[in-house]
């Protein structure tokens, strides 16, 4: 089922508002809504689900205008960050709930069969008679997914599905969810504030800030070509140096960088810590090493440029220089943006 958001607006007295978001999600696509807290990503998801109504704009499921269809009839599967399993029902009863309350009547045998099928799908066959309180967080989230899938939703919506789990479980579940999605081919939209999760899992990433889409594209596109300084920063560690932009060049401490298309005036160049190399002599921005931090696979160097701006970069573990030494930094793949 293709989903289309057309200039959707939702105002709140506080933050997490959505200011005019348009978005197309192709049938069978797995899309991540990525943004910091308060960027409106969960609000968008809840509007697609029908848990929240848009103040303006429209949401289409295929050709049908779903904007005012109540959540009950919208046919979405929603997975909550904190699972929202019914604590007084067993795992099996939780999964069966949607089928029991459905307008489409199913025989008890049909329901039992479907529950078994779903338990197999989420690899929890032995836990049918346990209560949610008796299984682990990762297992609960898989039950929640099975429960959402039980009603044969047109769209699967997940709100920070792995937010409450610890790192290892998270990585496993992520890969597992991708597998399930590839098996079922259901249109899936999920919300996360974790860029690694979004890049790992999604076909397409939609990055939000302050209730607006700032960039959307494949993980490759957003990583290689961040639209602005916010995206660059949000996707990972980034250094920022103030620069003067004159005639298509950005100058930092008299070193010029290519800045074609960026308007003259003050600007900034951003670059990843891995894209820096250090030289004792020669060209580059003059800098002094303030501190060296050791990591299992690298050394992180904290340095200060001649004009007093901080830079952090990663080097091989064999990096021989120490605190107090002076040299020059060279930047690969710098990105130049006009000052915000």
């Amino acid at each position: 089922m293709k989903i289309r958001l057309d200039n959707v607006v939702k105002e709140f007295e506080t933050f997490r508002a959505v200011h005019g978001v348009s978005l197309d999600i192709e049938s069978g696509e797995l899309v991540a809504l990525l943004g910091p807290s308060g960027s409106g990503k969960t609000t968008i998801l809840r509007m697609v689900a029908g848990l929240e109504y848009a103040d303006a704009g429209a949401i289409y499921f295929g050709d049908e205008n779903a904007t005012d269809i109540p959540v009950r009839e919208r046919g979405v599967g929603f997975v909550f960050q904190h699972y929202a399993l019914f604590p007084h029902m067993t795992v099996g009863e939780n999964i069966a709930f949607g089928m029991k309350v459905s307008k489409v009547k199913r025989s008890p045998q049909a329901i039992a069969e479907r529950v078994k099928e779903l338990l197999d799908l989420v690899q929890l066959s032995g836990l049918k008679d346990r209560f949610p309180g008796q299984i682990s967080g990762g297992q609960r989230q898989r039950v929640a997914l099975a429960r959402a899938l039980a009603v044969d939703p047109r769209v699967l919506l997940l709100d920070e599905p792995f937010g409450a789990l610890d790192a290892n479980v998270r990585r496993d579940l992520r890969r597992w969810l991708r597998k399930i999605h590839d098996e079922l081919g259901i249109t899936t939209l999920f919300v996360t504030h974790d860029q690694e999760e979004a890049l790992d899992l999604a076909d397409r990433v939609v990055i939000l800030n302050k209730g607006k889409i700032v960039q959307e594209g494949t993980p490759e596109a957003v990583c290689r070509n961040p639209a602005d300084a916010f995206v660059m920063n949000f996707l990972g560690d980034a250094n920022k140096l103030d620069a003067d932009i004159r005639g298509g060049k950005a100058y930092v401490d008299a070193v010029a960088f290519d800045a074609e298309g960026v308007p003259d005036g003050s600007g900034q160049i951003l670059f990843r810590p891995a894209d820096v190399s250090w030289r004792e002599q020669g060209q580059g921005i003059a800098a002094k090493i303030l501190r060296v931090i050791d990591r299992p696979d690298s050394r992180r160097v904290l340095a200060m440029t001649g004009s007093g701006q901080a830079v952090e970069f990663d080097t091989a573990p064999e990096f021989p220089y120490r605190k107090g030494e002076e040299g020059f930094i060279n930047i690969r793949r710098p990105r130049v943006y006009a000052a915000a």
Binding site: L51, V71, R72, G77, A84, F86, G98, V101, S102, V151
Partner: peptide
Amino acid sequence: EAATSLGA
């Protein structure tokens, strides 16, 4: 919300 989204 979960119950309602499941159609209850």
